[in-house]
Design a protein around this nucleic acid. Sequence first.
DNA 1: GCCAACGTTGGC
DNA 2: GCCAACGTTGGC
Length: 278
Amino acid sequence: MAPKHWLMKAEPDSRIVKGKDVKFSVDDFATVSTTAWEGVRNAEARNIMKSMHVGDKVLFYHSNCKNPGIAAFAEVSKEAYPDYTAWDPDHPYYDAKTDKANPKWYMVDVTFRSRAKHFIPLSLIKHLASLSSSSVSDPPDEVDYIGKEGMKAIKEMALINRGRLSVQPVEETTWAVLEMLAERGGWDDMNTKPSKRNTRKVPAKKPQTQKTKGKSSAKEDLEAFQDESNVEQIDAGEDYEPGHATIGKTRGRKRKAETAVDASSEEPPARRSTRARN
DNA sequence: GCCAACGTTGGC
DNA sequence: GCCAACGTTGGC
């Protein structure tokens, strides 16, 4: 089967959780070469990882930092196996509600391939996405090489529409566009920042209740991640065992959140938002 | 550090 | 099974 494409977020800046630094930057990644993507504690992201195969392509994304964006290219090097860090009480992402007899959290191994020659800032991606708000538009001159199709592909990225998903699918054409951007660059003199005014502004603010809006959009593509079928227990220590540097350092995967979801059995199909938006 | 967006929990 | 309250993500 042709390799699929994904985007995975890590935090390049230091952040201490339970006394441990969860930072994992592109430099850290290049140094260790292969890392166990532990710490994902969101059911949808976990299910997506379970659907990955060796050889699938991964975009390594810098999140929760000054300049978020795509920093490197990587590849899945080991399919999903139980995330043993969930059972370690001292680990930043320990989850008391899961046990070895019935693993709840999984991780894959990801191997570094190359740095993006031109770091692709989220601000550029968002800027391009905003240019074609309604109809499909031509790209700015600086990145005209991505074409209209490239603009469309970017606009449909989960990164734009599902901002909080830490592990997300990337369409093949979108991958090609991003690869091209990383290779050619050209936007350095472009103003991709939203400019002064606060883009996130929303009219009347109403503390709660906002969840009502319907953004139904791009979650359709996320279908097919239900999985069910339990990846059977695979021993976690094949390439490096717990306690090894890779783990000691911990990366900045997603934090906790989530739970419930499966409880007794494996989750129901594609549960993304449970409820939330409608 | 703020806070909007949105995912999760728990009462009913 | 709905939905308000709460907690987290992550851009800015």
